[in-house]
């Protein structure tokens, strides 16, 4: 399953809840969700730990819009909207953690 998270981990529990139940597949961070994938963020350690069982992606245009494109965590793959479409197509199902 592709899990789509669009919330900052410091504002809402969407990422935390997603990581708690997600078994396998991938997480795509979009909108404010991309902030979790940046160095020094309090959620970075949890995300890095999750990378052992889940592939982590972040939407590049959302990182750029927030001026955080130079701080992407190691192990996180950035994609554009085309990559977003590919990820949805590649996975059997998807869920947005609103």
């Amino acid at each position: 399953m592709l899990h789509i998270v669009n919330k900052s981990p410091l504002e809402r529990n969407s990422l935390e809840s997603c990581l708690r139940v997600a078994q396998s597949g991938a997480i795509l961070l979009i909108e404010d969700g991309v902030l979790a994938a940046t160095r020094g963020n309090a959620a970075a350690a949890t995300l890095t730990e999750a990378a052992s069982r889940l592939k982590i992606y972040a939407l590049a245009p959302d990182l750029e819009a927030r001026g955080m494109q130079d701080r992407v965590l190691e192990g996180v793959t950035t994609v554009d909207y085309g990559g977003f479409v590919d990820l949805v197509a590649e996975h059997k199902n998807c869920q947005s953690w609103l």
């Binding site: 399953m1 139940v21 997600a22 078994q23 396998s24 199902n93 869920q95 947005s96 953690w97």
Partner: peptide, 13 residues
């Protein structure tokens, strides 16, 4: 819960 979600076709949140 995670396994159940993996098994779905359409997830509306």
């Amino acid at each position: 819960m995670g396994k159940l979600m993996d098994d779905m076709d359409v997830v509306l949140s």
